[in-house]
Design a protein around this nucleic acid. Structure first.
Lengths: 344, 344
DNA sequence: ATTAAAGGGACAAGTAACGTCCCTACGGTT
DNA sequence: AACCGTAGGGACGTTACTTGTCCCTTTAAT
């Protein structure tokens, strides 16, 4: 992964666009041979005047040579192109993938980190860092934040620091219920978020496999009512997305329920809901937590999931995800998603 | 060597300056802890308003955090700093060295490539590449180019390619006389330049150790007169710089002459002239070739020499070098030169 | 209470880029 | 020979952004 390019894009973001444009222009000049200013600008999607200023610049740097029959690339230009090729193509590849995905999914923004979480361990960290960055940047003060379980979300607080204007935050588990690995439970993760941000957290355990009557009774408990109220005032959700089959297996779902989930075409899972490829809810865990109805009213939703194996699951959830969603994913999942989308 | 940074500095030079400033600012914020806008600007050599705009930018990118007691760096800022550290320090180190050397030597420009030719073989190639680039960029059409011998100059044509607007060039040896290694003779090098550029070349051999009378007679030969005329109309000189002692030994100079050269304080050698540390000519080979008197009138002079062992020699020659000289050297020689200069 | 130093708001001025013209020089076609 | 399409390049008014400059509020230390 090109950490250098990414770092640069943070230090001098306004220049990256300029650089991309000039790089593209240089590449076009190389390919289109001696070419005039006007057709070149048209190819690059720039106005004639813009093209002209850029060409003047490139000529000033001896990267292109301008003759009567148009502009052609110089050897110096070629060497510059060569030196930047791999980095630029990688970096601008990821940014353009992100842009396309954002349009396809119709959500607020998409961030794509390098690598593939399925095979590359470093990508998991990048995913966590990027998610932490998005969260830190967007969250305000005194907000209620709901988090889900899973290793992806669990890695986020490791990359958050205290006192970055995110004070007085209250973290809660987006869904009751317990998992197997204590470290990946939503409640524990909420606690570590609170510790990382200097905020507070509120725990809540929901007994598994209650009977219908017990469930109804439980819903009237004061502690439950308090949680329900919190869910209503949640300002931000940080959640992962899972593969439906994998999640069902991991949760020790009864066989007949697993079959039902499978038969209904469930592909993705998020905060206890199972979605088919069109984004329809085909099943849900019977528990207290964030409801899909809540989501629309929540201003900040950060979905974090990576790895090409999760592409289908992410698409399934995103098919009905609210517009204000911010998706943080990796190259593996992003390219796979685009592959599926264009084949549709 | 950071080819990426160098390429970028050509594609978007205005970005590099901005980036350097922001990088420095970020580094200062990291070091000086929570610090205010005004002292920070003073440290960075920026006006208050500039500092402010930059800080707003850095805050917008979540690289610094601004509180009531001043600005401090965020973890994201730290990671950006870390990612850019090696490249930036290397690149901006070399550019600042080049700038300082340019001022100290009072010549047109100085290019510093990474490494040390004495120990690093790759640096020799970089030196050749950079020299080739400078030559290609500055030379026009139909010019007369004089080249000297030596392995450094010999490596340049390998990095030149045909048809970059450098047509109709005539290459000649800057000095008559033959060396030991046929591949490093000026005549052979002139031929390989011509081949690389698609130009022509003119050979000329000057018999060694002629008597005074023979020398005078020889100067009236038509072929010699033709060469002398060419030397008068030379448009560009590409030459190396050698250590006086080493050159004298390599040339099988008689012992008494070597002693004389040494006693006169000769440090550097270029196109047959020996220079002391103040740039005075203390000895010269009796041969046909470019004279120091010619140099002043030649618009493009490219001096190529690297390796810390040559620092003293380069300084000796540069002490009296014409202002239009372009020096291409390496980090090893450049830092050594600066060390000597500041100790003076 | 006072003072120094922090961030931040406001506004005029200066600059660089941009849109929009037009002109001239080739080279090939009719 | 005349014509037309395309090439680069010059000129100028407008605009948008940066920058310099001043002032205000807040906070912590004295």
């Amino acid at each position: 992964m090109d950490v250098l390019m990414d770092a640069q894009s943070k230090l001098v973001p306004e220049m990256m666009e300029l650089m991309q444009q000039r790089y593209r222009l240089l590449k076009l000049v190389k390919m289109a041979g001696p070419i005039g200013r006007r057709p070149l600008g048209q190819m690059a999607g720039l106005s004639e005047r813009e093209t002209r200023t850029m060409m003047d610049m490139l000529r000033g740097q001896n990267l292109i040579h301008i003759a009567k029959d148009g502009a052609s690339i110089t050897t110096e230009g070629l060497s510059v192109l060569l030196a930047l090729e791999s980095s630029m193509d990688d970096w601008s590849g990821r940014t353009s993938i992100a842009k396309r995905l954002m349009e396809f999914l119709g959500i607020q923004s998409v961030k794509v980190v390098a690598g593939n979480c399925d095979t590359d361990i470093a990508s998991k960290n990048l995913l966590g860092m990027e998610a932490a960055k998005q969260f830190s940047a967007e969250i305000g003060e005194g907000k209620v934040v709901a988090v889900t379980g899973g290793s992806t979300i669990a890695s986020i607080p490791l990359h958050i620091e205290k006192f970055n204007g995110a004070n007085n935050l209250l973290f809660i588990a987006a869904r009751g219920g317990v998992g197997d690995d204590i470290g990946l439970q939503a409640n524990v993760i909420a606690a570590s978020f609170a510790s990382a941000c200097g905020g507070t957290y509120s725990t809540f355990y929901y007994p598994e496999s209650l009977s219908e009557e017990a469930h109804e009774a439980f819903r009237k408990e004061p502690s439950v009512l308090k949680m329900l109220e919190l869910y209503d005032t949640t300002d931000c959700v940080l959640h992962g997305v899972g593969d439906a089959q994998t999640m069902a297996t991991m949760r020790n779902t009864p066989t007949e329920e697993q079959d039902m989930i499978h038969d209904n075409g469930a592909k993705g899972e998020a905060f206890g809901y199972y979605f088919d490829q069109d984004g329809n809810v085909v099943h849900r865990l019977r528990t207290i937590g964030i409801q899909t109805g809540h989501l629309m009213k929540i201003p900040l939703i950060i979905s974090v999931a990576g790895g090409s194996s999760k592409a289908e699951a992410i698409l399934a959830y995103m098919a009905s995800a609210p517009k204000q969603t911010v998706l943080v994913t990796d190259e593996g999942a992003a390219t796979e998603m685009l592959k599926i989308l264009v084949n549709k």
